[in-house]
Simulated scan of single mutants.
Amino acid sequence: MTRQCLDKDIKITPVQGRVHVIFDDAEIASSLNALELDEPGAPLRIYVPRGDVREDVLEMSETHTTCPYKGVASYYNLKTLTADGPDQAWYYPDPCPLVEPIRDHLAFWGDRIEYRRSEV
């Protein structure tokens, strides 16, 4: 299958300081290497390196979506002792060249997801 990737004015920049990802009041990720992806017409997204995410909260989902600018996204369900978050984390295992820096990074969304920043 040939991947079709379209061009768009997407900006990817390093986040200053440390990013903490909170799910249902529990920290599930902490990173000094997070990236902001600014895509016109879409909410600002923060991508955290997979190695900075707690593996014990990730459960592979069968969900996949396609973005013409980023590629095919794979999803994770989030699971803690107190909460489940279906399809609330995603990543691009083979991103389009335009967004190659987000390879091996996860983004999160949902009403129980909170991003906090702290100084190093």
Results as ranks from 00 to 15, higher is better:
residue 100 E to Y: 10
residue 70 K to N: 03
residue 69 Y to M: 09
residue 4 Q to H: 11
residue 106 L to G: 03
residue 14 P to I: 07
residue 5 C to G: 00
residue 105 H to G: 03
residue 51 G to V: 08
residue 16 Q to K: 11
residue 88 Q to W: 06
residue 118 S to P: 07
residue 12 I to F: 01
residue 7 D to S: 04
residue 6 L to G: 02
residue 87 D to C: 13
residue 84 D to P: 05
residue 13 T to R: 09
residue 4 Q to N: 12
residue 46 I to A: 05
residue 82 T to Q: 06
residue 87 D to T: 13
residue 25 D to N: 10
residue 81 L to Y: 10
residue 70 K to D: 03
residue 46 I to M: 03
residue 118 S to R: 10
residue 33 N to W: 06
residue 8 K to D: 01
residue 98 L to M: 13
residue 76 Y to N: 13
residue 27 E to F: 04
residue 73 A to F: 14
residue 44 L to A: 09
residue 36 E to C: 07
residue 93 P to D: 07
residue 9 D to F: 00
residue 57 V to H: 04
residue 47 Y to D: 05
residue 43 P to N: 06
residue 79 K to W: 06
residue 29 A to Y: 05
residue 84 D to Q: 14
residue 73 A to W: 10
residue 5 C to R: 01
residue 83 A to C: 11
residue 102 I to V: 15
residue 114 E to F: 06
residue 62 E to T: 12
residue 58 L to E: 11
residue 80 T to E: 12
residue 20 H to D: 02
residue 74 S to E: 08
residue 97 P to Q: 13
residue 47 Y to L: 10
residue 106 L to W: 01
residue 90 W to S: 12
residue 99 V to T: 15
residue 36 E to H: 07
residue 44 L to C: 08
residue 24 D to L: 01
residue 111 D to N: 14
residue 83 A to R: 14
residue 24 D to E: 04
residue 62 E to L: 10
residue 115 Y to H: 09
residue 101 P to D: 08
residue 112 R to G: 03
residue 3 R to A: 05
residue 76 Y to A: 15
residue 117 R to D: 05
residue 25 D to Y: 01
residue 49 P to M: 00
residue 73 A to P: 10
residue 39 E to K: 03
residue 58 L to V: 09
residue 56 D to G: 06
residue 66 T to N: 10
residue 72 V to L: 09
residue 9 D to N: 08
residue 115 Y to W: 08
residue 65 T to F: 01
residue 29 A to Q: 02
residue 95 P to H: 09
residue 18 R to F: 01
residue 69 Y to S: 10
residue 119 E to C: 02
residue 27 E to S: 11
residue 1 M to T: 06
residue 63 T to C: 15
residue 88 Q to A: 01
residue 74 S to F: 04
residue 18 R to W: 00
residue 78 L to H: 11
residue 100 E to C: 06
residue 95 P to E: 11
residue 24 D to Y: 03
residue 117 R to P: 03
residue 70 K to F: 00
residue 12 I to A: 00
residue 98 L to W: 09
residue 88 Q to E: 13
residue 7 D to K: 05
residue 103 R to M: 09
residue 2 T to N: 11
residue 66 T to S: 13
residue 19 V to H: 00
residue 76 Y to D: 15
residue 55 E to K: 15
